[in-house]
Nucleic acid binder design. Structure first.
Length: 674
DNA sequence: CGCAAACTAAACAGAT
DNA sequence: TATCTGTTTAGTTTGC
């Protein structure tokens, strides 16, 4: 009885209602028959990014123009252009790219929010979404701050050390400077973009062909040339100040050729530029060390100098350091850059703050008490307090699990969101919500990449993971050193990895057992101390193909992924590497989606694809792979042991969503299993 | 609508 | 005996 899961059931559906657009379909390619998603838009994620970058460049150019104008007065000649398109520098005009003009960037203005609210009464899920976003924003803010601090530190160091370093070619510096601006602006924009994408993903924000809402506004609007000019002035002043102050310290600096211990640098040396994506530090890893810069020197990664505008490659960190000292000595430009960046960041923060306030107000208005007044990164908890009239259903209990809300349909998201999900930082909450029972097969893909990446999320959020039990069990087993686990260990894995499984133990444990027995891919092996379960990968893979061939949509997805996947991921990787912003790449927010995508693609290719459509009929018993090892459970004739196909779609967007937290059931939660 | 897959519940049996 | 582990069956939900 308790289960009554019944909960909602209903709703679901309407994934597409709001104008969600299908990213995939559109732009990227015209798949033979693209999916059904008719609709709307098609702004491929990649396009979005490009667009933004383009805009960012434009903005940067404008800024540069301003600066140059000023500089020119001082030093008439300066030349050389950066790689960027010509001319930009000389012309005074601040041309705004058409694209920018068209976009009329706007963020989610209060009005927009209102619209959303009005359109559909804010459903609990939506609220959750909002809350999550808010959290995300806060996180981002924090990261920004960190980043900023680092930059400052760095700057300071450089100032001290290199004050004396001769002034090298101005031109070089100028170039670097320009690029630096561009990159930094882009970085900031990306931040916003993330936010936006998240919103879009949630369906709260819809992008339509005609009207594209892009985050740029903050830059284009927030930072108008005039402001920048002002900034520049400030900067120059500061620089002077610095230089004067530096003089006083200079003696010290000179004495020490190498920067006084810069922890950062030292550490980096060890990593030697290796840029590790901490986003998911898989296993061991210390808890959150992502803060520690040692992970990645902001200016050095992948053996490349990350100094804006500089892409020099270095073998070792030492070389890089030299380069840094020589080529990027601290001077006006560097200082200026930082200053500008500061401003930009501030602008963004303001923006974020505003949105945050809005959210708060909204929530308050809706009687939702958010626990998160403070920007604590605590993921997912906010929601907990939502006071919904709903009674917590035994099953999904979380307050949120509410039944239906059109917006965050179980069915995960519209195509659009799916597409985006691939690109956006998954970490942020996929909207889960309601999905009560099962998520479409699409989510059954091999979760490994995904699960790992969202690990923290699932560990803390009582969100039902969008994977089938079979997938989860497989994951648990594969993660174990021996690739085998006892039933109890599997249980433990579930509870450890998913907050969701800290409750209703009887139910899901039963399901686990059921799955173990039912699916051929799980092989029971007698062991000294009992029995352990292993995974017959072949069997597991076997099932996937069926689904694919079966559903056009899935097929299409895969095809898309395959077709563009590589390109996309490559592009992303490049782009990420390029602007790799510690902010984004690092932390919990992680943007692993790209990796996820890549991994997913890889997996799919390996598995599913090869079987391809081959058999739609079913598992051919005959050819069943040799029993890999262990004895296979003898199942003479199982009626329907056909395993389910895990569909492999790589949509990364499961929709987990925010967490409800544990406060709820904590009490009963884990104990049962433990 | 039918089918297949997944989920939930539960009965049942053997092992501890 | 109680609990755990495994197997099965049945009913429901969901997506295609």
């Amino acid at each position: 009885m308790m289960q009554e899961s019944g909960t909602e059931a209903t709703s679901n559906g309407p994934a597409n209602q709001n104008g969600a657009a299908s990213v995939e379909g559109g732009a990227r390619d015209a798949r033979p028959r693209s999916v059904t998603t008719p609709s709307t838009v098609d702004i491929a994620a990649a396009d979005l990014i490009h667009l933004q970058q383009h805009q960012a460049l434009q903005v940067a150019r404008q800024i540069l123009l301003q600066q140059q104008q000023q500089q020119q007065q001082l030093q008439p000649h300066q030349g050389t252009g950066l790689k960027s398109p010509k001319g930009s520098e000389k012309q005074p005009s601040l041309q705004v790219p058409v694209s920018v003009a068209m976009m009329t960037p706007q963020v989610i203005t209060p009005q927009r929010m209102q619209q959303i609210l009005q359109q559909q009464v804010l459903s609990p899920q939506q609220l959750q979404v909002l809350l999550q976003q808010q959290q995300a924003l806060m996180l981002q803010q924090q990261q920004l701050q960190e980043f900023y601090k680092k930059q400052q530190e760095q700057l300071h160091l450089q100032l001290l050390q290199q004050q004396h370093a001769g002034t090298q070619s101005k031109e070089q510096q100028q170039q670097a400077q320009r690029l630096a601006f561009q990159q930094q602006l882009m970085q900031v924009q990306q931040l916003q973009q993330q936010h936006l994408l998240n919103l879009q993903r949630q369906g709260l924000l819809t992008i339509q062909p005609g009207q594209t809402t892009l985050p740029l506004h903050s830059l284009t609007q927030g930072m108008i040339p005039a402001e920048l000019q002002q900034l520049w002035k400030e900067v120059t002043n500061v620089k002077e100040e610095n230089s004067s102050s530096n003089n006083s310290h200079r003696g010290l600096d000179l004495s020490s050729p190498q920067p006084p211990k810069n922890p950062l640098l030292n550490q980096h040396a060890s990593t030697n530029g290796q840029y590790m994506s901490h986003s998911l530090k898989r296993e061991g890893s210390t808890v959150d060390d992502h803060h520690h810069s040692h992970h990645s020197h902001p200016l050095y990664g992948h053996g490349v100098c990350k100094w804006p505008g500089c892409e020099a490659v270095f073998e070792d960190f030492q070389s890089f350091l030299k380069h840094l000292n020589n080529e990027h000595a601290l001077d006006d430009r560097s200082t200026a850059q930082c200053r500008v960046q500061m401003q930009v960041v501030q602008q963004l923060e303001l923006q974020l703050a505003k949105d945050k306030e809005r959210l708060q107000a909204m929530m308050t208005h809706l009687h939702v008490k958010s626990t998160e007044p403070k920007p604590a990164p605590q993921p997912l908890n906010l929601v907990s307090n939502v006071t919904l009239s709903k009674t917590a259903p035994p099953e999904a209990s979380p307050p949120l699990s509410l039944p239906q809300t059109p917006t965050t349909p179980t069915a995960p998201l519209t195509p659009l969101s799916q597409a985006y999900s691939v690109i956006t930082p998954n970490s942020l909450h996929h909207s889960v919500g309601p999905m009560r029972r099962r998520y479409s097969d699409k989510y059954n893909m091999p979760i490994s990449p995904d699960i790992v990446q969202n690990k923290e999320f699932y560990m803390n959020a009582e969100v039902r993971p969008p994977f089938t039990y079979a997938s989860l069990i497989r994951q648990a087993i594969l993660e174990s050193p021996e690739k085998q686990l006892t039933l109890n260990e599997i249980y433990n894995w579930f509870t450890r990895m998913f907050a969701y499984f800290r409750r209703n133990a009887a139910t899901w444990k039963n399901a686990v057992r059921h799955n173990l027995s039912l699916h051929k891919c799980f092989v029971r092996v007698e062991n000294v101390k009992g029995a352990v379960w292993t995974v017959d990968e072949l069997e597991f893979q076997k099932r996937r193909p069926q689904k694919i061939s079966g559903s056009p949509a899935l097929v299409k997805n895969i095809q898309t992924s395959l077709g563009y996947g590589p390109a996309l991921s490559a592009a992303f990787q490049a782009s990420m590497a390029e602007n790799n912003i510690p902010l984004y790449t690092t932390a919990s927010i992680g943007s692993p989606t790209l990796n996820s995508l890549a991994n997913a693609i890889r997996e799919e290719m390996n598995g599913a694809m090869d079987h391809g459509n081959s058999n739609g009929s079913d598992s051919s018993p005959g050819r069943s792979p040799l029993p890999a090892m262990h004895h296979i459970k003898e199942e003479p004739l199982d009626p329907e042991d056909h395993e389910g196909p895990l569909s492999l779609v790589m949509t990364a967007n499961h929709s987990p969503d925010f967490g409800h937290h544990r406060d709820y059931d904590d009490d009963q939660g884990h104990d049962d299993m433990l």
